[in-house]
Structure formats: structure tokens, C-alpha cells
Design a protein around this nucleic acid. Structure first.
Lengths: 341, 341
DNA sequence: AATGAATGCTCAATCGATGGAGCATCATTG
DNA sequence: CAATGATGCTCCATCGATTGAGCATTCATT
């Protein structure tokens, strides 16, 4: 159409389309954003504009559009890592749900680094997000403050904060159930009644605290006393977990593993043992991984209900800034091995 | 500072800062974007502006900034899924690398759906991305065309296309090595010389073709003939893989598994067998999963070199639109079980 | 004292899309 | 035939940051 030779160097704008069709930029804009009926544009003009847009490979300039409008329809999420199924699934579901609502999700991964979290949140605010979801944030309240300064509502996911509504998994109940399951398996398979060993995490971390509580209550309900030495929380790293297990005076046979990442260390440890000894170990893990579930001594894994968490997230987002700052618990799903001969 | 009572309803702009400091918006802008020395702004004014920005919780409006500039510094990536370690790691590394260069990564997940891929690419173009990376795209050339229309350079990652430079893993060599490894293990552990069974993927898929080629050549190098019936490519889904294995007249004992997702089906099948029979099976998998690697009969996994792929990606991006449309192969890493008593 | 240069700013146009206000044109009504 | 209303547009200010051009000062030099 115009004299731009090699694949038109500039991107097509509504002004280009307007001159192609022989109309005004406003008309083009309203046709393209769907407000043309409201603005009494004729159907014939609308069709000509749409055709021209198609022919010229027009793509909206979101920057210009958002700059002008008051809502951006962009929703931001910060997430720690993509290295486990849980966060990956959260990211996927969230994107899907937002897109289904015609909004634009932007997700940023913060490497479990508090400074990066803040930087990422700032970055997302620059995008004029309408809402920011802080998933698994180290310091959710710091982020909530940043957002408040910008007048943007926040929601916490996976880890609770005090300045915004929080949607988290019901770690306590699931840990209690999982503990029961492991105790049963130990009694059945190994004739073992004793207390289990809890491995992984940090006690200053909300999830670990809740899981420990469930772990203890499940024991208490069966009249089993758990010595403090049976609770090992040297962080999540595989190597530290393995070292902690190796340092125990008595080799544990029933184990509550506090994350899939810790499980890697536990399995390495088990595989370093004599096969016969290894066979007389049972463990269950909080968090789910399909291969982790297939390992020989695994008696169950707790899968967080990603669909449920995201559904609840949508519900809170719909409430906007008026959402109460409370904690919403979503039940987990206990997965046990099925096809085992 | 101003009369906005409850957490200043409007976001702070350079105009607000200008009136707070008592200077012009241009001065504020140049201080905040670092061009102030070039524009001969005094250090004292710069400091006052920075202080005011801090005090008022100023956040840049990217939309306005990008609208004005010719480069956006936004780089887009489309990626199929976050449900395996490979894509998760790619996303993480890419984000990290871009941020280190002061650019803004935006990643979108397309659920292995060709229509979503195109929609996502269009969405990213709306963000005025300077460059779009099509990772594992079903139809990279369709995306390259969209980008060409918008004058945006594209790079393919993981799967090659013909209209843009492509950076992919060297599937052939790795498959050949892995096949050799499985053959060795079968000979050593099971006294088995025979051809292996190849399971998973589709023959119209580039990676499967290359891996099949490596698989066949490794056999040929040892003088082993592979019957066509030993190559099963019913897709990647676990259930289909399991069904295909169960349908075989003779139970395979040495297996080349074409993806971690297929591996799930293979392991389910193995676990449905009598333990003694299961113990006499060896397999290796193309693609890596830390738990997959810990499963008993696994003799090795091929890990794609994510760091290497991303490093190569950066190199190509630096070349901009002049990057030649060729395919760059990055070697994989063969991972074998280490601590096994 | 006059000239030139350096210093430290401000002005105003601009990017592309949006939407309230307004302007023709044509049909209908009393 | 004037008044009213509907129809189908266009005009233009606006969002916030950027940047080339330009305007006062101050300082150094001859």
C-alpha cells in the first residue's frame, strides 16, 4: 500500500489503516477495540477496517493503549522457581485463567531471592499491572507495601502475609494425614510403631511450622511421643538433608520428607545404603512429583490442589481491593501408589 | 506532600516529582533514566530528584517510556509447558540472562497448542518486543512470518524452523551415545546383545527423527540390525507408551525412552510386572529428571545443556536481524547414575 | 570590554490509542 | 417548512516519558 519496500520497516498503526481505508483514526480504533456499535460506526466501514487490519498485519500497540486507558488488564505474578511441578503448574494455570478472562498475565521468576522479588515487583508495577500476585514470596508484606504505594491490589499465594488476602494450602491437615499414612505403612510393612523422622525445611518458615504441627498431632492422636531430635530442619537442600540423616545415631526407617527438593537428598541417602536395609525404609513426601511417587519406598505424596488454589485466587481477584486480608486454606490431595503388584 | 489522603490514589509521575523538587519534567526524566550527565544536569539536582523519587514511591510507567522510545528492551519468549525440568530451566535461565542485560523478559506458555502459540506471539508483539524467541514451537515458521510483518527478529529454540536462526540440542549424537550406554548395560548386566526398543514420540517430529537416527546408527556401529517393529512412536503420552509396550509379542528388556513424559508410562508398566522380571530390564531416557534418574533400572539420562542453549541464544540475539538462518547444534550432557552401591 | 565556550536548565513536539464532544446529513413529525 | 431525532462520522485533548532545540547564566580568554 505505502512506499515502504522491505516488509514495511515501521509497524502498522491505526493511522496507517485510517489512510488505507480512507477514514479517521478514531473510527479505526473503535472498530478494532470493539466499541464501534456504541460509537455508531456502520457495519460496512467496520468490515473494511477489519479487512485492512488483516491485510496489513496490524498489531495493537499495548503500550499506547494502556497509557491512555485507566485499566491495563495486565496482571502480574512473581513466583520463586520453575524447578518443581507445583510452581510450574501454578504458572500455567494462572496464565490460562487470566487469558480466558481476556487479561494479560506477566509472570516473573525471582529465584527465591528477596532482593530480586522486590525488583521484580517494581518491574511489574512499571507495567501498570491492575493486580499483583505474590506467590511463595519470602517477604510478602514488603511487596504489599510497594503495591499499596502504587495503589495496586495484591494477593498472596502459597505463603501468607499480613497486609493482603492470602490463599494457601492447608498444610496442617495434609501433614497430619500423610503422617498417619506413613505410620500405618511402617506398622504394616515393617512392624514398626515408633515415631517418624521429620526432615527438611526451616522452622521460621510458615509451611514447615504447619507441617510440623500436623506431624506432631498425628503422633499424639496415636499416643506416640516425638522427641525433639526426630525433627530435622536443616533447610530444603538435598545435600543438607542427606548429611542430617547420616549424622543420626540411629538410622530412621519411617520418614516424613518436607519437600520434593529435600526428597532428592533422602533418595540419594537411601540408595547409598545396603539394598536390604534400604528396602526396610518407608517415607512420605509433602509435595508431589510424578517420578518421586514411583520410587520404591514411597508410601504417599501430598499434592497441592493447584486448580483449587487458582480458582480461589480468581475469586479473590474479582473482589478487587475490598478483599478482606484473611488467610484462605485450600485442602491438599493425598496421593498414594496405585498400581503396585 | 500533596493533598491525596489515602495512599495517593494516582501513581506518582515525573510531573509530580518535578513540582515537588521544583524543576522541569525533562530534568526529572533524564535523572531517572540515567542520561542526566549527557544532558548537563547538576549532581545536586540529580540527588534531590532521586531522593524525591524514593520518598514518593515513584515507579516508571513503562508504557509511556516504551511508546516514546524506538527500542522497548522487552524480549518475548513463548514456551510450550512448565511441566518438565527442561522448559522450566530454560525459562529461568532466559529471564536471568535478560535481566542481567537490563532487558525485560516476558514469557508466555502456550500449552503445546498451535493456535495459542500464534495468539501468544501476537500478544507479545503488542508489547512491542524487540525480539521474540520461539521455544519448542509447533509451527516456528508461522511465528517467524508474524514477526517479519512487524519487523521483529525471531529466534527458534529447541525446535528448528526455516525462516529464522535455530538453536537446538544435538539430538543425534546424544541419542547415539545413550543407545551405546544402554546396549553396554544390557550386555554387562543381562547378557543381552539384541536390539533395543525405542519408545515414544512421533516420526513427524524433528527430535524424534534425529533420535531415531542416532539410535539406528549406534546399533549399526555394533553390527546389530534393528527391525522396524522395535521402533514404537505412538506419541509422548504415558498411557499410549504403556499400551504400546504391553502390546508387544516379546517383552523388551532394553529400552530407549524418548522423553521424561513417556518415561512415566514406561515406569508404570515396569511396576506392573513381577519384581524379578522388572529387575531384568534396563532403560535410558532422552531428557533429564532428577527423580527419573534415581529409578532402579535407569542406566542414564540425556540432559540438554540449558546453560549452553541460552548462551548461544544470547549470542544470536546480539547479532540482531542479521543473524543467519542456520541451525546451531548444542551438545547434550549424558548423565549416568553415580552413587549406586 | 567583547567574544566564545561551557554549564544548567526548560520548552514543546512526539509516540499510538482512546473517547467525549461536536458536526454534517438525512428522515420523521406536527 | 421548521423542529427534532437518529445516524455516521471526525476532531482533538489526553495518558507519561523522552529528547532535539534553545535560552539564560557564568566563566575564561584575548
Amino acid at each position: 500500500m505505502d512506499r515502504n519496500g522491505p516488509a514495511s520497516s515501521r509497524r502498522t498503526t491505526i493511522y496507517d489503516l485510517a489512510s488505507v481505508v480512507g477514514t479517521s483514526p478514531s473510527a479505526v480504533s473503535s472498530v478494532l477495540n470493539g466499541t464501534w456499535k456504541k460509537r455508531r460506526i456502520s457495519e460496512s466501514l467496520a468490515n473494511r477496517v477489519l479487512q485492512a487490519a488483516e491485510d496489513n498485519g496490524y498489531a495493537l500497540n499495548i503500550q499506547a493503549s494502556v497509557l491512555r486507558r485507566d485499566k491495563s488488564d495486565i496482571v502480574g505474578m512473581i513466583i520463586p522457581k520453575y524447578d518443581n511441578r507445583f510452581f510450574g503448574a501454578i504458572a500455567e494455570r494462572f496464565e490460562e485463567a487470566m487469558r480466558a478472562e481476556g487479561r494479560f498475565p506477566v509472570i516473573t521468576c525471582t529465584q527465591r531471592d528477596a532482593a530480586l522479588e522486590v525488583e521484580a515487583a517494581r518491574g511489574l508495577l512499571s507495567y501498570q499491572v491492575d493486580c499483583l500476585v505474590a506467590c511463595g514470596a519470602t517477604d510478602p508484606d514488603r511487596i504489599a507495601e510497594l503495591c499499596r504505594a502504587a495503589g495496586v491490589p495484591t494477593i498472596n499465594l502459597d505463603l501468607p502475609g499480613s497486609l493482603a488476602p492470602s490463599i494457601i494450602s492447608d498444610s496442617y491437615s495434609a501433614a497430619r494425614e500423610l503422617t498417619g499414612l506413613i505410620l500405618d505403612a511402617c506398622a504394616r510393612d515393617l512392624g514398626l510403631a515408633g515415631p517418624l523422622t521429620f526432615i527438611g525445611g526451616r522452622l521460621d518458615d510458615h509451611n514447615t511450622k504447619e507441617r510440623r504441627r500436623g506431624f506432631l498431632d498425628a503422633h499424639a492422636a496415636r499416643g506416640i511421643t516425638v522427641p525433639e531430635t526426630a525433627i530435622l530442619t536443616p533447610g530444603y537442600a538435598p545435600a543438607r538433608a542427606r548429611a542430617a540423616l547420616e549424622a543420626l545415631p540411629v538410622r530412621p526407617r519411617g520418614i516424613f520428607v518436607n519437600s520434593t527438593i529435600t526428597l532428592e537428598g533422602v533418595v540419594h541417602w537411601i540408595q547409598s545404603l545396603d539394598p536390604a536395609v534400604a528396602a526396610a525404609i518407608r517415607y512420605g513426601t509433602f509435595d508431589y512429583d510424578p517420578f518421586g511417587a514411583l520410587l520404591p519406598q514411597s508410601v504417599g505424596m501430598v499434592e497441592q490442589d493447584v486448580a483449587g488454589l487458582v480458582a480461589e485466587l480468581l475469586r479473590q481477584m474479582a473482589k478487587g481491593a475490598e478483599a478482606p486480608r484473611r488467610v484462605i486454606n485450600v485442602p491438599c490431595i493425598l496421593r498414594t501408589p496405585t498400581a503396585r503388584p
